[in-house]
Design a protein around this nucleic acid. Sequence first.
DNA 1: AAATATTTGTACGTATGTATG
DNA 2: GCATACATACGTACAAATATT
Lengths: 82, 82
Amino acid sequence: MTIDHDGIEPLYLQLAAILRDQIKSGELPPGRAIPAESRLMQIHEVGRDTVRKAVRLLRDEGLVVAVQGRGTFVAPQEPSED
Amino acid sequence: MTIDHDGIEPLYLQLAAILRDQIKSGELPPGRAIPAESRLMQIHEVGRDTVRKAVRLLRDEGLVVAVQGRGTFVAPQEPSED
DNA sequence: AAATATTTGTACGTATGTATG
DNA sequence: GCATACATACGTACAAATATT
């Protein structure tokens, strides 16, 4: 999964989708820290604003929890919502 | 209500509180547009990021609705939630 | 204890895109 | 076409919390 810098979809939505997939697929399991903002910037070649908007989305969805000074972690559980 | 630039509370939270008050008090009634980002920047002497973060909070709370190209409007109703 | 490094949070600026009037 | 207004995206700097040396 790579980001299309020339595509129509906003970069932060693309990045959010990538991270969301990695979480839902188990590649990033509950409790695991996702890459730091600085790493995500390098990996995906986007600015900090874009990274933070993407992570913000995941936080709003309850998928991750950010802790100042430590990192951002995949939430313990996705409530099944069935 | 003015913003304390030297206070402890983050500027965007202070601004959000001010706008929230203006909405809840009826000073900004439902349907009314709140001042544009550029105006809020001038009025409160803060940057765009600060304004957008404050407005984002109010959007998350359902108090306002932003429409690209038109403005940001006080939501029709605050659900009473009693 | 103290200094350093890492990481998220806040705050500013600028430029460009998109939608509306 | 032009002006206005929100949206996206980049950059920088510093603060605050945490972890490590």
